[in-house]
Design a binder for these strands. Structure first.
Length: 353
DNA sequence: ATGCATGAGCA
DNA sequence: GCTCATGCATA
């Protein structure tokens, strides 16, 4: 059970070189400063109150792009608004239909749906302690726009995460990981939040970051857990996924902006430590959680995509109907749509706003 | 690298 | 119930 293989050591050689399809990064948005700089809200708890105008506002929101910069506290709302402003005013012309909607999607995916004899599997609603890495964002946003930069009150979300297979780690890794420094974050942070939002900058940084990380011989997973060692108030660890997405620019713009200073801080510390060749292993240990990932079969997936094409935001009832037709759990379908929407948004951005 | 999932905060 | 930030599990 300990041979999970990869994961923590995928630093330099990813077996899958080019076979993977990279998802749309939001390459270069507008060249210079967008407007949406701060995802960080003043105090509110975790992430970005995205919910804000979410669903409702989503429809048009066209004009309100400027978005309140931080002050409003709902970073999410703001970012969202601006994001929407950039999106095409696609509206649900299908608003009224119900049956017809399903019928149409059915038609589109008819072939697949027919074979209801799919072999999908459900499993109990797994759960996990989950840690909240979002809080880190709030603390990182310098007082600039917010002015309210509380001290160490931030709940430092430490990571219950998984146990990095450090046993196999070489000295280099350890050195890079062991830098535990308590300090305020690199100087650059002082003036970000307003200027660091340049997409081009983020792109450049992400690339540089990856390059230097690899140079240090540290994996994405290592970086994630090492973040906790920075002891930055409110900053805990992050997962390999997040680091990966950061490097590949597959995070939301706001998320990228929020993470940049943190990763930059880590990078500087890591390189510093690397120079000193410090070696003090520091381990965390993780828990034993086993979440099972639902795998939606291709036919069902195609059907979902067909439905999504005509109505990306189906009502609860439509979701139920779809779930039944595809013989999937309603929640699975609902989540699928949510994730699909997120994905679509990123795609639209990458499309080159 | 990416698919499915959780959870916080908001409407 | 949505969005958004993130994460575990997995291809």
């Amino acid at each position: 059970m300990m041979m999970m293989s990869l994961n923590s050591k995928q630093a330099f050689s990813m077996p899958h070189g080019g076979s993977l399809h990279v998802e749309p990064k939001y390459s270069a948005l507008h060249s210079t400063s967008p407007g949406p700089r701060l995802p960080l809200r003043p105090r509110p708890r975790s992430s970005n109150a995205g919910g804000g105008g979410a669903a409702a506002a989503e429809e048009e929101a066209g004009a309100a792009a400027p978005v309140a910069v931080a002050a409003d506290g709902s970073g999410g709302g703001g970012s969202e608004a601006m994001r929407r402003a950039c999106l095409p005013p696609h509206r649900n012309i299908f608003g009224g239909l119900d049956e017809s909607l399903l019928a149409r999607a059915e038609a589109l995916a008819a072939v697949d749906i027919v074979s209801q004899s799919k072999s999908h599997h459900h499993h109990p609603p797994h759960h996990s302690p989950f840690k909240n890495g979002r809080e880190l964002l709030e603390h990182l946003s310098p007082g600039l726009a917010l002015g309210a930069m509380a001290g160490p009150d931030g709940a430092v979300v430490s990571t219950p995460a998984h146990a990095p297979h450090m046993a196999t780690m070489n000295p280099m890794h350890q050195a890079a990981l062991s830098m535990a420094h308590a300090h305020g974050l690199p100087s650059h942070m002082g003036c970000m939040s307003d200027v660091d939002a340049d997409p081009r900058d983020l792109e450049a940084f992400a690339e540089r970051f990856k390059q230097r990380r690899i140079k240090l011989g540290v994996t994405q997973a290592d970086v994630g857990s090492a973040l906790a060692n920075l002891k930055i108030p409110g900053v805990g660890s992050l997962s390999q996924s997040t680091i990966c997405r950061f490097e590949s620019l597959t995070l939301s713009h706001n998320n990228m902006i929020a993470l940049k200073p943190i990763l930059q801080a880590w990078l500087e510390e890591a390189e510093k430590s690397h120079r000193e060749k410090l070696t003090k292993p520091e381990l965390f240990n993780g828990a034993e959680k086993k979440r099972k990932r639902t795998s939606i079969a291709a036919p069902e997936k195609r059907s979902l995509e067909a439905y999504f094409a005509i109505q990306p935001r189906p009502s609860s009832e439509k979701i139920a109907a779809i779930a039944e037709k595809l013989d999937l759990k309603k929640n699975v379908v609902r989540v699928w749509f949510c994730n699909q929407r997120q994905k679509q948004k990123r795609m639209k951005y990458s499309a080159g706003i």
